[in-house]
Design a protein around this nucleic acid. Structure first.
Lengths: 357, 357
DNA sequence: GTGCTTGGTTTTAGCGTTCCAAAAGCGTTT
DNA sequence: AAACGCTTTTGGAACGCTAAAACCAAGCAC
């Protein structure tokens, strides 16, 4: 027997604590307690109040709560301009939002100016919206954000390590080295020995990390790395050129620091009439949406973005709860998604020896 | 001579209206007026108050403003789970956030459950956070959201038309038909006559729209469409199969309803030893990040997402300002991004007649 | 009986804004 | 001088909530 429409109906404005209190025959504070510390009420009273809350579809006003408690249950996230939009971060944002929601928090976006994030954006969200904390992403070398936030005691978590200088605050990151290491293992198991690495110019934190994993795995297998590594800037044409010497040197497999670079490798191979996956194995990094749609589908190292999102929220909430706890840092394992480009497609046998030449 | 650190310093908590008032020697109300209706103050007073505001780095508390004015300057946006993450919508979100920020609004995310958006999420944002309006995306046939929001008088704008039944509320959309029409024009100019269309199964609003543009352009040029159209579900393998009859029928160009479908077409061509762009021209839709990285780079119809974002914000704010104004609907023009896959690469001459066979 | 808990509830007092009505300031007019 | 407009400024009150303190039975000891 539902008496009133549950949930705030269109016109008469939203239900308030006081209305619930009046209807339940208790004081407003008791209703507040019913929600925030139910254990404080006599079971019988709790029952009654809860029923009225349910019945009237009452939902506390966050504005009033924020004003009183100075906590907004909001997490700030700076989103880059459309141009610098990045599939990995986009997927991360979805995961983040979901994880936050499950914890009763919400993500409040603010737009980073094209030149990269500025501190002003953070300051505004902090002062105006009283966000409880921030999630940082796309952290660069000498990023000022961590130090700035730490100095004012604002809780934050970064997706991405700090590569230079001393560590500040909590972060969650993906172990790139472990990813490329696994890629080497995969290729070695398929019989490859001449495994090259196509990476970014030295100095990019995650780029060097990914190179490092390749190198250590090669060393472990007693395979030479000299002359098997090339550096390039991010774009695809540069990659196509940069990979040439590696192919000339007879590499039978190339591990790239990104799917983009792997694509440059595809193109370089095609230029010389070779087929990626059949003649030379190619492995990418990030498992971007493109990867599975390429021909041949690109084997790639996938970052566990759902997990990164969940952990970011977990760490941030922990930091909010206990601001002085020692920092926590998490290095998550990526996973290798094997597709045709690493040549494992046929029926398990290694190398090539498969189709016509 | 800056006396105090401007902007809220770490410890002493944020600056309030009252503090500013005290320092400027006026009442709090006057400070409020200085911000909200500056014309009301004597120029001299305004000057003084403004200086103190600046000096102390005062920023109004949105929570208090929201409580008082019942308007949060927040726009709600339901974000899909990681799995259904979609590059077009992701880029749209970046644009949206930027446009909102510029108008003094912020985007508040809430996570849609995996099964698609539910009304509960909207209701919560409305009751709890007092969002001023919503931006909808990924609207489906018989989407209940528009009707629901309209019924309770909540301002909203949809990115995407309503394809079935009567129109409700404001929307911004991209004219898909115009995009495929332009694609036909482009191909005809290159000398193509047998231009096929690879689309989704009938019933998808935007799919039918894109088909329609192809059809009308073909008709305009007196070219037959019978036997030149195929339908398929979204995935790439299905597309590869579905396009076969079109190629068998001698199509020299294929326009696909999405980049994904275009990829299926690439694969189908390769299977028969033909090269996309050289032997058969291919045009995709959406200009996804993948498109420019493919080999050959895919000619594709790009949606003006920046503009869509801007217009969504503009329409939404207009709706908030005048709830009873007649609905506004905007159909924006996409643009054809010409790349190698349409075979215009060489030096302008049409058809093929270019490289070895 | 007085005092002393103890658990459950209410009262009071804001949190930082803005709305509203009322009060000053002040130049003109009666 | 008082009365009248006009502009500018101010003093509550209220928005919806919760922290903190006060209250109020019972119960229980002495």
């Amino acid at each position: 027997m539902p008496r009133s429409k549950n949930s705030s109906s269109a016109k008469n404005g939203p239900v308030t604590l006081a209305m619930v209190a009046a209807r339940a025959g208790v004081s407003p504070q008791t209703v507040s307690n019913a929600i925030n510390s139910p254990g404080m009420l006599r079971p019988e009273t709790l029952e009654r109040v809860s029923r009225v809350i349910e019945e009237m579809g009452y939902r506390p006003s966050r504005a009033a709560q924020t004003l009183r408690t100075r906590s907004s249950k909001l997490i700030g996230y700076g989103i880059l301009p459309t141009l610098s939009s990045n599939p990995v971060l986009d997927r991360f944002l979805h995961a983040l939002s979901q994880a936050a929601d499950e914890a009763g928090y919400r993500i409040l976006l603010f737009a980073c100016p094209p030149g990269g994030p500025t501190l002003q954006g953070y300051e505004e969200l902090l002062d105006q919206h009283k966000v409880d904390g921030f999630v940082l992403s796309g952290t660069a070398r000498n990023d000022p954000r961590q130090a700035w936030l730490a100095k004012r005691g604002v809780p934050f978590v970064a997706f991405g390590r700090i590569w230079s200088g001393r560590q500040i605050g909590d972060w969650v990151d993906v172990d790139g080295a472990s990813g490329t290491d696994a890629a080497v293992e995969h290729l070695v198991a398929l019989g490859h020995r001449k495994i090259a690495f196509l990476g970014w110019e030295r100095g990019s934190g995650s780029g060097d990390d990914r190179a490092e994993g390749w190198q250590r795995a090669m060393r472990r297998h007693g395979l030479p790395t000299r002359g098997r590594r090339a550096q390039t800037v991010g774009d695809i044409d540069a990659a196509r050129t940069a990979v040439k010497p590696l192919l000339d040197a007879g590499a039978t497999a190339v591990i790239a620091a990104s799917d983009m670079l792997a694509l440059g490798c595809y193109q370089s191979l095609r230029e010389r009439g070779a087929a990626p996956g059949r003649d030379v194995a190619v492995v990418g990094f990030d498992d971007s949406p493109t990867a599975e749609n390429l021909f041949p589908a690109l084997t790639s190292v996938a970052q566990p973005l759902e997990e990164v999102g969940r952990e970011c929220v977990r760490l941030l909430l922990a930091r909010i709860a206990t601001p002085d706890a020692p920092p926590e840092r998490l290095l998550l394992e990526p996973s290798l998604v094997v597709r045709d480009s690493s040549g494992a497609a046929g029926d398990g046998t290694a190398d090539s020896t498969e189709s016509a030449e």
